[in-house]
C-alpha cells in the first residue's frame, strides 16, 4: 500500500451518541438526548485535530468514544482502518495500548499514594510487564517530559500543577502509544506553565510521530497545536477545516463569535454571544444555533443546514455563510422562540 492509500489514523463516520434520560414519572417514557450527532472527521497520522465548542457541545463525548469509554449509538469510528467497536479481545487489548489520554485535572488524575516512578509506569504493568522491569523505565520517561531524575521518588503532592501534568503525559507515553486524546490538558494550569506544557506536547508529537485529538476551549491554544479544527455546537460539527483558516477566517456565525470573543482585544461587551445552549430535551427546529444567531431567519427555523464546502477542505453548516462573510446579511437578531 502506498503512503497515500494508507487509512488515516482516525476516521469518524456519522458518529452519533444518544443517552436516555430516565422517565420523570413512574410510567413515563425515557427520553433520548443527543450528545453527538452525525460527527465525521479524519485525523492523518502525526497530525492534530482540535475540537472546540462550549461545555455541553459534545467534544468530550467524541473523546470518550475514541477511548472506548462509551459506545456509539450510530456511525463508525475507524482507527488505522479498523472499526474499534468491532474488535476481538486481542485487538481491543492492543488498541488500549495504542490510544492513551491526558485529562484536564492533574490533581485528580494521579493517585496521591503512588510515587512518581510507579505512576508513570503503571500502564506498563497493566499491560503485563513486571513491576521491577516497568519501574526501570521510569527515569527515561521522566527525562522525556523534562522532569528531574530525583522526582522518581516523590509523591504527587510534592509536584506543582505543571509538573503533575508532565507526569500524566509521561504516563500516557509509557506504553508507546500512537494516538493521544488530550481533553483540556492545559486548562487548569497557570498561563506561564501552560506554555511549557504545550511546548512539550508539540515536541513529543514531532519526536514520536504521535497523532492528537486535542480538545480545548482556548482558541489560541487550539490553534497552536492543531492542523485541522472542528467546531461543535450542541452535539454537531458546524465547521471543519484547516486550523488557520477556520480560526482566522471563520465562516459559521457561531465560530465568528467565538473567534471575536477569544481575540480578547475588543472592549468588554463589544462582542457578545448571548443566551445559552438550547435545552437538549427540546432542541429548536432547523439550525440549532438559530436561537443565538444574529442572522437567523425563516430558512434557519425550517431546515437543518448541511455541511457544505466554503472553500476547498473547509466545511460549514450554515444556510447563509456566503452572505454573512460578504457582510450582505443583516443582523436580524436571534430567533429566541424555540421549536
Amino acid at each position: 500500500m502506498s503512503a497515500d492509500a494508507a487509512p488515516p489514523m482516525v476516521e469518524a463516520i456519522g458518529l452519533t451518541k444518544t443517552f436516555a434520560i430516565p422517565a420523570a414519572t413512574l410510567f413515563g417514557r425515557a427520553r433520548p438526548v443527543a450528545a453527538a450527532v452525525d460527527v465525521s472527521f479524519r485525523i492523518p497520522r502525526g497530525r492534530t485535530f482540535g475540537l472546540v465548542g462550549e461545555s455541553g457541545s459534545g467534544k468530550s463525548t467524541v473523546a470518550k468514544l475514541l477511548l472506548k469509554l462509551e459506545a456509539p449509538s450510530a456511525g463508525r469510528l475507524l482507527v488505522e482502518g479498523q472499526d474499534i467497536f468491532a474488535q476481538t479481545p486481542a485487538e481491543e487489548l492492543a488498541y488500549r495500548r495504542k490510544v492513551q489520554a491526558v485529562f484536564q485535572d492533574p490533581y485528580g488524575a494521579l493517585s496521591p499514594r503512588m510515587r512518581a516512578d510507579r505512576i508513570v509506569t503503571e500502564p506498563l504493568r497493566a499491560h503485563g510487564m513486571d513491576r521491577r522491569e516497568a519501574e526501570a523505565r521510569a527515569p527515561e520517561l521522566l527525562r522525556l517530559v523534562g522532569l528531574p531524575p530525583d522526582s522518581a521518588r516523590k509523591y504527587p503532592h510534592e509536584f506543582s500543577g505543571g509538573q503533575r501534568q508532565r507526569l500524566a503525559i509521561a504516563r500516557a507515553l509509557s506504553v508507546d502509544p500512537a494516538l493521544l486524546v488530550l481533553d483540556e490538558p492545559v486548562s487548569a494550569l497557570d498561563v506561564s506553565v501552560r506554555a511549557q506544557v504545550l511546548t512539550l506536547l508539540r515536541e513529543m508529537q514531532q519526536r514520536l510521530d504521535l497523532t492528537y485529538l486535542f480538545i480545548g476551549h482556548d482558541l489560541a491554544v487550539v490553534r497552536y497545536l492543531s492542523d485541522t479544527v472542528g467546531v461543535m455546537y450542541f452535539g454537531r460539527l458546524v465547521e471543519l477545516g484547516p486550523a488557520r483558516r477556520v480560526l482566522r477566517r471563520p465562516a459559521h456565525p457561531y465560530t465568528r463569535r467565538l473567534v471575536a470573543l477569544a481575540a480578547g482585544d475588543a472592549p468588554l461587551g463589544a462582542v457578545r454571544l448571548q443566551g445559552e445552549l438550547p435545552n437538549p430535551l427540546a432542541p429548536p427546529s432547523g439550525c440549532l444555533f438559530r436561537t443565538r444567531c444574529p442572522y437567523a431567519d425563516a430558512t434557519c427555523a425550517a431546515r437543518l443546514p448541511e455541511m457544505r464546502l466554503a472553500e476547498p477542505d473547509h466545511l460549514v453548516a450554515c444556510h447563509h455563510h456566503e452572505a454573512v462573510a460578504a457582510g450582505a446579511k443583516a443582523e436580524t437578531g436571534p430567533m429566541l422562540q424555540e421549536a
Binding site: R194, A195, L198, A220
Partner: peptide, 15 residues
C-alpha cells in the same frame, strides 16, 4: 507567555 499570533504562527514564550 500569553499565546500571540506572529506571521500566521502562534507564539508561546514560557517562563
Amino acid at each position: 507567555s500569553l499565546p500571540r499570533i506572529e506571521e500566521e504562527e502562534v507564539v508561546l514564550q514560557p517562563i
